[in-house]
Amino acid sequence: MNKLLMVTVLFAALLMAPSQADARDDHLYNELGGTAGIEQIVEDLLFNSIDDRRIRHHFEGVDMVRLHEKLSEQICELAGGPCVYTGDDMVKSHTGMGVTRGDFNALVEALQLAMDDNEVSVPAQNRLLARLASMYDEIVGL
């Protein structure tokens, strides 16, 4: 019985562990300047992207207002903020776009510049980039 109790406590501890990570996630949300900061970063990211001859073709005919809204939600959620991403999943929204490896990197650079311009610290930039990089396989080559 004691063993069962120990196992239960261990499980409970494991289930609690992500909430600690969440506290840290919320920290990233704050470091990005909260919802307003993220919306500004995403706006700059989109302007940088359509200025970039390597990837601007991906944005032709796209509803930029909607894209700004969904991308802001997504980054806010990823950063641990109080948002819920309501857009399509990554595979669905990128299928048929033919995003190349170079395109993905160009988008990363557009985001890096946007974060520079909004004075996001290097550690916070890295944490957001690491989370976005994990979506690489759901975006590139579809």
Binding site: P123, A124, N126, L129, A130, A133
Partner: peptide
């Protein structure tokens, strides 16, 4: 490369 490795550095 680890984008956010120790000390949140790359």
């Amino acid at each position: 490369v680890w984008l956010a490795g120790p000390f949140d550095r790359t």
